[in-house]
Design a binder for these strands. Sequence first.
DNA 1: TCGAACCCTCACATTGATGTGAAGGTCCAC
DNA 2: GTGGACCTTCACATCAATGTGAGGGTTCGA
Lengths: 126, 126
Amino acid sequence: MRIGELAERTGTSRRLLRYYEEQGLIVADRGPNGYRDYDEPSVDRVIQVRGLLDAGLPTRIIKQILPCLDKPRTIYFPDATPEMIATLEAERDRMTRRAECLLRNRDAIAEYLDAVREYDGVRSGS
Amino acid sequence: MRIGELAERTGTSRRLLRYYEEQGLIVADRGPNGYRDYDEPSVDRVIQVRGLLDAGLPTRIIKQILPCLDKPRTIYFPDATPEMIATLEAERDRMTRRAECLLRNRDAIAEYLDAVREYDGVRSGS
DNA sequence: TCGAACCCTCACATTGATGTGAAGGTCCAC
DNA sequence: GTGGACCTTCACATCAATGTGAGGGTTCGA
């Protein structure tokens, strides 16, 4: 598929798809005319990249961890260097802390909303 | 306490503390000399702001939700306008999705790390 | 009273993720 | 064969979160 379709199916601008490619997060074949050509799995890939980005990871890190997250659990150990391992461990912990913070604050918001709902319910009668 | 101490205790640069104030995320008294003067709770406040920021929320949103998150469960309903409620609900859901994505990918990384560890363990013998 | 170590404001620089638009090639349907 | 809807690259713009430094005041201890 071409970039327009991928953009539509992933809800991502063409500009960003090119940017992700430039950052090494996705790859694309090229047709004889220079047009980018994507395969079906690219859709999931882009969605995952967007999720990670939205979760707050920078492209630099995403590029590093993506190879470890590929579905066919082949578990590549291409260059599981100590630095790489350290980066992953650090990132795993960062993600844990981040998620905790997120959930903690989300719960606080939910709690507030519940209180508001109850308040409104009482105020307007049942 | 003055800005230097707060910076040190929160691991945040003075510049950023001033920025957060400019964005309305924290407040500071002023001494007769113009120096900012912070109270003890400011420390937690700054830490929470940093957590939310790190969790990916923009200052604009943080400013909106912070009042709902204040500890003394006074539950202010200063201006619980419908728009405000909608914003909060949307943000709550966004945070949930974000956290899920984060945890899903974190688990994938953890799984990978486990596999690597096992691989290394086997390879080097016990 | 001098210097170090604070503080202030202002303003420009940078980085990452994006938007936008120009200048131009390709493909297809009419 | 022309127009519209694609695609290409390049480059400049933007926005939020930060860094950095200039120019200048305050506080305090030696």
